[in-house]
């Protein structure tokens, strides 16, 4: 995806200024890791400790991350359904991610719902396909919770795919795209009308 920077964090010595520059460039920062003993692996913790200096990150100092989004993409070694009160892991993924939420809060960032990957090896092809799209949406879709934003995101992706196709296929794909866009426009019209009626009923 063109607007995404994939940056592996390694155990090599860090160039703090370069790492901070990358963070400054991003609107949405996703920390992606496998869950190690209910936390991030040591290498990522070390990276956070070194890169997020007070001078750089504190809102009352440079506040370089203020207003940016912070997301977590985490893969679990046991099924996601185990992460809740009364289940084998006892704590929810949200509870386990609290330190990152606290970090986002301290730095005046917007904390996103955590993206969970579990039992990847057991997933069917269709499930993996869905996971891929949801992951891509997590990286780049504007408003993660709204169906309309999802529809916009999907049709935009479709549009870029169509642009790369030979002209004989372009025509067929564009017809499908138009249909999806029309559906969405009809849906928006209906919603507007419904809202109007609801307002009339309330008054």
């Amino acid at each position: 995806m063109p607007s995404v920077t994939w940056h592996p964090v390694t155990a090599e010595p860090l160039n703090i200024t370069a790492e901070q520059r990358l963070l400054r460039q991003a609107d949405r920062i996703i920390l992606q890791f496998p869950l190690y003993w209910y936390s991030a692996p040591a290498v990522l913790k070390n990276w956070l400790d070194q890169v997020l200096t007070r001078q750089f990150a504190y809102p009352e100092a440079a506040g370089a991350l203020v207003g940016k989004e912070l997301g977590i993409a985490v893969s679990l070694g046991s099924p996601a359904r185990n992460f809740k009160a009364g289940a084998p892991e006892h704590f929810s993924v949200s509870q386990i991610m609290t330190p990152f939420q606290a970090l986002a809060h301290k730095l005046k960032m917007v904390f996103l719902p955590t993206f969970v990957i579990d039992q990847f090896g057991y997933q069917t092809d269709a499930e993996k396909a869905k996971l891929l799209i949801n992951y891509q949406r997590y990286l780049t879709q504007g408003d993660l919770d709204h169906f309309e934003a999802q529809a916009d995101w999907l049709t935009t992706q479709f549009q870029s795919l169509i642009a790369q196709k030979p002209s004989e296929q372009k025509q067929q794909l564009t017809l499908i795209l138009e249909q999806l866009k029309n559906n969405q426009a009809d849906l928006n019209d209906l919603k507007t009308n419904l809202k109007m009626i609801q307002n009339m009923e309330d008054s």
Binding site: A126, K128, A129, K130, L132, I133, F147, Q150, A151, L154, Q157, F158, L161, I176, Q179, L180, N183, Q184, D186, L187, L190, K191, L194
Partner: peptide
């Protein structure tokens, strides 16, 4: 795989749009 995943997601979008259109109507 990537292209197939997009078609599948668009098919799901299309179905969800129909469901929502019917509901809203």
């Amino acid at each position: 795989f990537k292209e197939r995943a997009l078609y599948l997601a668009l098919a799901e979008l299309s179905e969800e749009q129909q469901r929502r259109l019917k509901q809203a109507q």
